[in-house]
Design a protein around this nucleic acid. Structure first.
Length: 865
RNA sequence: GCCCGCUUGGCGGAAUUGGUAGACGCAACGGACUUAAAAUCCGUUGGCCCGUAAGGGCCGUGCCGGUUCAAUUCCGGCAGCGGGCACCA
């Protein structure tokens, strides 16, 4: 054998099989089929221009599922496309003077070229790109349908403004008070914006989380908290002026603690509250205060250090339960206009914030809740004198008709009373807010609206869609090029024909990703977003795979969109993703030179425990493993790995080293281990190819018989592992079987037959994981069909268990030996076999055991006297 | 601050209805083959202790306690790490 044949030649093999699969159209989803359907989807990539290890891990997971499900007889839809609108394209335009469209489409070409050698089984005939009018015209139609259905609206509102990117951000896109991409502190501005009414579905989105039992608990919990349901009451407080005369107005506050109303000592309203704005007109000092409040940042640091500030309006609010009693009304910087009614009542005794505020402005502190077991008088004295609010459970005190009730019944009683007095009502409040979709950017889907002076904002009629982006734009100055385009925005009103202007804002890019999974069902359809029958056939997605960073944003928006589209008659579906899997990040050690500069892995040589920079021999410190990032230079380029070891080795390592939901540490040693396995399989298969294929004979020596049973057990276990995303465990079991086959004595009776059969099974089991070498081996074994077209192997249930089982024998819970008994042996037989063990006899020392526990097929535990 | 998750050898991890802890892999060490290297193959590898040896004993799944014949697994408390939300009334 020449040396070139001793090692698996991935460089020749991998492209060959990729061509074969493409030529055979092996991965096309069937439009109509008698097979059950299975839709596997990965979160589609942004065309940044470069495939990174995170993509490789994501698509490897999806590809294994897709290939496994095809082998199991499913009609699999496994599409790929491009989330092609977004800011980096505009930044590239700004920096390099290249048009965002040109840059994006070039990147798509480059990335397709980088994905090809990885051998993923995507159905490229269904490729979509969201920046093409053929795609986005359908979402313009959706938006106009949402308008008709009352699910989209325009309002002037305070918005998160990113001063670096010159655009508005959704609440979900503000992280720690900073823009999620720019990292710049977000400012508050008042603008007219388009909103989607996601809050209309707040309760349904919350309730339905419970039904998503194939989603990670973590993601479900995050959405649950994000929607943030609070039950409480709205309470009306009639207002009096400083002279004690009723103004005729009432202040409405929201509270989750109506049980503490008797402890109220003030009301406070947000700086943006209409009442505050109205009062400021005649009060310059208050005006200054409101300006001051608007300036306070929303960053973590700002919030933590921000002092509670208040401004006494001089107004008094009448207590709902205590006739004649009033509390002062403040404007306070910590009250949020966007939550509840933008007004609160303060109960300092039982709310930390209110306590801080009360102490600062000398307001009363009244104890109305006391822990059940405490002495009420003593507890009250301590609370009212101190600076600590009591927020725990207990019994209501000092509260008239609520006295003696526990917190929860008191809440109900207070609400009942409010309702009977006409002074308030029980209500549910959500933290979730409507989704602002307007962005002051060029590279996005134009919002199909025309502003007419007479008619107001008018939706672009269906016949005029799509509203396409103009190509001739400039990026030499910040801001939205659409707004300053000389001609594009000028048009006529569809209603009255008068001169009018187009909306120059574009949609948030999460708009595109909220329905792309439906577009894949009929990606070329021109007149509609998707074919209803196709969508209802394929959806929901059976297995969605992506990063946890989209747990709230994309996944919640998609759940909303699915409901909104259903309610607009597009299809009948509530949940888009039946199964969701969030994969871990790909990490790598970090390296730093003495001067603090990060050093790339390729430039580091390990010398025992120490490491040096190859280029100049300078010592580098090895830091902890962190997510691969350009800034820390700890990235490993997939292209380079594939060039050295091939796609299969990279795939095998990614799947075998860590469970897929956990972070994966990329190591050179790990990929080399994977590469060694490929060659091992290659050599073992070479030997197997010398043996005729055929059924395993009925009569086998003990060795082959045991391996034969292991083959069947492995088929069962690997199938189970793949179903449950335990890919690392599946790989381990396949390696165990491979080891057993390598160790099998083939000279025994049935040795050759079991060996040959075992190698065939291993080849089929590894085919979803390392598909190229699987094809190569399959061919080498003499098969003329493709392994991708071969069904998943069946196991014989009769072969799953041994005739003889090994039981552990414990004395007082400690392992003292094992016994082998026939399968199905009765308890008495197990007990006597265990008791006859010398080690057991010795410990019993002639005395009878106190008790013997026999768990069939598992264990015997002897409790010594 | 509130909510959630995790913690197992030198390392990644297995043990998923409580039942032989450390599968599988990596690293390391020893050996075989080779002029040599690579590749490959064989062996050892949780800690401590007794024994020349064969072999045997004790401890061990972050820490403390509990339930149980039996706990990595269940319960209570604590610590460390990670994540989500954060002036949400």
């Amino acid at each position: 054998m020449s040396s070139s044949e001793e090692r698996y030649n991935f460089a020749a093999s991998e492209p060959k099989w990729q061509r074969t699969w493409a030529a055979g159209n092996c991965f096309a989803a069937e439009e109509s089929s008698t097979k059950p359907k299975y839709y596997v989807l990965e979160m589609f990539p942004y065309p940044s221009g470069r495939i990174h290890m995170g993509h490789v891990r994501n698509y490897t997971l999806g590809d294994v599922v897709a290939r496994y499900k095809r082998a199991k007889g499913f009609n699999v839809l496994y599409p790929m496309g491009w989330d092609a609108f977004g800011l980096p394209a505009e930044n590239a335009a700004l920096e390099r003077g290249v048009h965002p469209g040109v840059w994006t489409r070039q990147n798509i070409g480059v990335m397709k070229g980088q994905l090809a050698p990885l051998g993923f089984s995507h159905d490229w005939a269904r490729e979509i790109s969201t920046c093409e009018p053929a795609y986005y015209k359908h979402e313009q139609k959706m938006f106009t349908d949402f308008l008709k259905a009352g699910l989209a609206y325009r309002k002037k509102s305070w918005v998160n403004w990113d001063p670096v990117e010159h655009t508005v951000l959704a609440n979900e896109q503000v992280v720690d008070g900073k823009g999620w991409r720019s990292g710049a502190p977000v400012e508050q501005r008042e603008l007219s914006q388009w909103f989607l009414k996601i809050t209309h579905y707040a309760e349904e989105l919350l309730q339905a989380i419970e039904t998503l039992d194939r989603w990670p608990d973590k993601v479900r919990l995050m959405q649950h908290n994000w929607i943030g349901k609070s039950e409480g009451a709205r309470v009306l407080w009639p207002l009096q002026d400083a002279a004690g005369k009723a103004t005729g107005q009432s202040l409405e506050v929201f509270t989750t603690r109506p049980d503490t109303l008797f402890g109220a000592s003030f009301c406070a309203i947000a700086a943006q509250h209409p009442l505050a704005v109205q009062l400021a007109e005649g009060n310059a000092k208050l005006g200054d205060f409101l300006t001051e409040c608007a300036k306070v940042g929303t960053s973590t640091a700002a919030i933590e250090t921000a002092e509670k500030l208040g401004f006494d309006t001089g107004l008094k609010a009448e207590h709902p339960f205590i006739p004649g009693a009033t509390v002062p009304v403040y404007v306070a910087n910590f009250v949020l206009m966007a939550y509840g009614t933008g007004a609160i009542f303060g109960c300092p005794g039982h709310d930390e914030r209110d306590m801080e505020f009360a102490r600062k402005y000398g307001l009363t502190v009244k104890c109305v809740v006391a822990p059940e077991s405490d002495d009420v008088a003593a507890f009250t004295r301590k609370l009212e004198a101190g600076n600590e609010a009591y927020t725990g459970d207990g019994v209501i005190v000092n509260s008239d008709f609520l006295n003696g009730l526990k917190v929860d019944p008191a809440k109900r009683a207070a609400i009942e009373k409010l309702e009977s007095l006409g002074r308030g009502k029980g209500t549910v409040q959500y933290r979730l807010r409507d989704w602002g979709v307007s962005r002051q950017r060029y590279w996005g889907c134009p919002i199909p609206i025309i502003h007419c002076e007479k008619c107001g904002p008018v939706p672009v009629p269906d016949k005029d869609l799509p509203v396409t982006l103009p190509e001739d734009v400039t990026f030499d100055i910040p801001g939205n090029p659409l707004a300053r385009h000389p001609t594009w925005k000028h048009t006529t009103c569809p209603t009255c024909n008068a001169p009018a202007v187009r909306e120059t804002d574009t949609f948030d890019t999460f708009f595109e990703s909220s329905w792309y999974f439906a577009r894949y069902c009929s990606p070329k359809l021109a007149d509609r977003a998707f074919d209803r029958k196709q969508a209802e056939t394929w959806l929901p997605v059976d297995q969605y795979i992506g990063g946890v960073e989209h747990a709230v944003l994309h996944l919640l928006y998609s759940r909303f969109f699915t409901r909104a589209l259903s309610d607009c008659g597009y299809f009948d579906l509530r949940e888009p993703f039946d199964g969701m899997f969030t994969q871990g990040m790909v990490c790598h050690e970090t390296y730093r030179a003495a001067d603090g500069a990060w050093v790339e892995p390729g430039d580091v040589r390990k010398e025992g425990a120490a490491a040096v920079r190859v280029t100049d021999g300078v010592a580098v410190t090895v830091g902890r493993s962190e997510k691969m990032s350009k800034s820390k230079k700890n990235v490993v380029d997939p292209q380079a790995i594939i060039g050295t070891y091939g796609a299969d080795a990279a795939r095998l390592f990614m799947l075998s080293d860590s469970p897929p939901e956990r972070d994966l540490e990329w190591t050179d040693a790990g990929i080399e281990g994977a590469w060694r396995y490929l060659n091992r399989l290659w050599r073992l298969a070479g030997a197997a190819s010398q043996i005729q294929t055929g059924p395993v004979p009925a009569t086998l020596d003990a060795g082959p018989a045991a391996v034969n049973r292991q083959i069947h057990r492995t088929i069962a276990a690997v199938g189970d592992d793949l179903e449950k995303f335990r890919f690392n465990s599946a790989v381990a079991r396949i390696r165990e079987l491979t080891n057993a086959l390598a160790d099998l004595d083939r000279k025994t009776v049935g040795g050759d037959a079991v060996y040959r059969y075992g190698i065939e099974v291993v080849t089929r089991l590894v085919s979803p994981i390392i598909p190229h070498i699987a094809e190569e081996v399959w061919q080498m074994l003499g098969f003329t069909t493709l392994v991708v077209a071969t069904p998943w192997p069946e196991f014989d249930p009769a072969q799953l268990e041994d005739d003889v089982v090994t039981l552990a024998v414990q004395v007082n819970g400690k392992l003292r030996g094992t016994i082998s008994v026939a399968k199905g042996a009765d308890k008495a037989a197990c007990e006597s076999a265990a008791l006859s063990l010398p080690a057991v006899q010795k410990l019993l020392d002639g005395k009878p055991p106190r008790k013997v526990i026999v768990v069939p097929e598992k264990i015997v535990n002897i409790v010594a006297a």
